[in-house]
Every structure is written in C-alpha cells, then in structure tokens.
C-alpha cells in the first residue's frame, strides 16, 4: 500500500514535468504575477518591501489555484482515476498522494524561488528567511485544501471557475498566518506563534482535505 502511495506520487510528479506538464507554466505565472505588483503600486523600494510578504503569499495562492484543476482532471478523463479505485489505495489516500505530488512539483519550486523574488521586492534578509520557512510550512495546506476543491470540480465537469470560488475563502487563514509570520519580523506579533498556526493548518488539512476529496472523487466516478 505504501509502495502504491509513493509510486502514485512519483508518477504525478513525472507527469507534472513531462512535456505538456504544468509545472513550468506555474512557475512562470508566479514570476509574472509578482512582477505585476511594482507596476501596480509603483517601484518605490519602501512600499515594495512593506508589501513583499503579502505579494509573495498571494502570488503563491494564485499559482496554486491555477494548477489545481489539473490535479484530477486529466486522470479522470483518460480513465486512470477509475483504475486507481481498483488498486489498494482508498480514494482519500489517492487524493493525499496527488495533493503531495502537487505540492512537490508545483509549489515547492515556487517556495525555493521565492527568495529571488523577495530580493526584487527589496525584502531584507531576516524577513526573507521567515518568508521562506513560512511558505515551506504553509503551502502544503494550499495543495491539501485544493485537492478537495479540485475533486469537487471534477465531479461537476465544468468546474474550472468553480474551484476559485470554493478554494480562495478557505485559503484566508493560511494567508493571514503566512503574512503574519513575515510581519512579525518587524515587530508585529510573534514569528513562532504564526509559524505554529501555519503548521497546524497544514496538519489539519492533511486530514480534512483528502477526506473531502475522497468523497468528491467517489461522486465523480459514479
């Protein structure tokens, strides 16, 4: 069962980077979204540094959103989701594996690249470290919540736009604590408290997200 779980993760990651995979696209989207902000608010270094944490987080949220509808859609259309139900994994674990693969292939590269964009937004070193750790701890929640919404959208069939409506309100706590951790560096609250809330969100949704996604997938396959 464990072997099936990990091979599913590997398979999905491979697909993410294969030709036509979305991983490269998502990174490009992340970069472009961030570079829009200086155009929107002006190139003033002080303002950019002030909002950098929020910008990086919101760009990550949108990038996650962009890549969500691929999580189950392709597998559903070509029937591999059906064959997965015959395997040893219950659907909720299939969803967990796919969410982890989504995080590893789509969001982890963004997290690793984020210091680069932080630099462009004049974020100082101490804040940058915190942003990096906060993204690392918090973005799994984005994939896990996203799995539930993506699965619901697959069941709907024309669910592309629906995902955004379902998922973004649920992302708000992650956004708040993620940005909170960054702002705590400059004295507004405590970094560790925000970090531990981020971590607990990821853990809560590691249970809740796959459970809901499993139920929704069962609907989709009926």
């Amino acid at each position: 069962m464990l072997a099936a779980f990990f091979s599913l993760i590997l398979r999905d990651m491979r697909l993410g980077y294969a030709q036509g995979g979305a991983a490269g696209l998502v990174i490009a989207f992340y970069a472009i979204t961030i570079s829009l902000f200086p155009f929107g608010v002006g190139p003033d270094a002080e303002i950019l540094a002030r909002i950098a944490g929020g910008v990086l987080w919101i760009a990550a949220l949108l990038a996650a959103l962009l890549s969500l509808d691929r999580m189950f859609q392709a597998d559903f259309e070509d029937g591999s989701l059906d064959s997965l139900t015959l395997g040893p994994l219950p659907l909720s674990l299939v969803a967990l594996a796919k969410a982890l693969a989504h995080w590893l292939s789509m969001l982890l590269p963004l997290v690793i690249l984020s210091p680069l964009f932080g630099l462009m937004l004049h974020l100082d070193g101490a804040s940058m470290r915190v942003v990096l750790i906060a993204l690392l701890v918090g973005t799994p929640a984005l994939s896990l919540i996203g799995a539930a919404a993506a699965a619901l959208a697959v069941a709907v069939r024309r669910g592309g736009a629906l995902i955004a409506l379902l998922v973004l309100p649920l992302y708000i706590p992650t956004l708040i604590f993620g940005v909170g951790a960054v702002e705590a560096v400059s004295g507004l609250g405590s970094v560790s408290a925000n970090m531990s809330f981020l971590g607990s969100l990821s853990l809560i949704f590691a249970v809740l997200g796959p459970l809901a996604a499993g139920g929704a997938l069962r609907l989709a396959l009926e």
Partner: peptide, 23 residues
Amino acid sequence: RAAAILALVGVINIPIIKFSVDW
C-alpha cells in the same frame, strides 16, 4: 452530496477563519 461535502468543509473552517481573522 457535493454541496454537502462543501458545507461540512466550510463548517469546520468557520472557527478557523474566525480565529485567524480575529488574530
């Protein structure tokens, strides 16, 4: 059933959202 799943995910989230917004 899809709406029910969403409603349940939402209701578990309401205290989390409330807490985070208060914070």
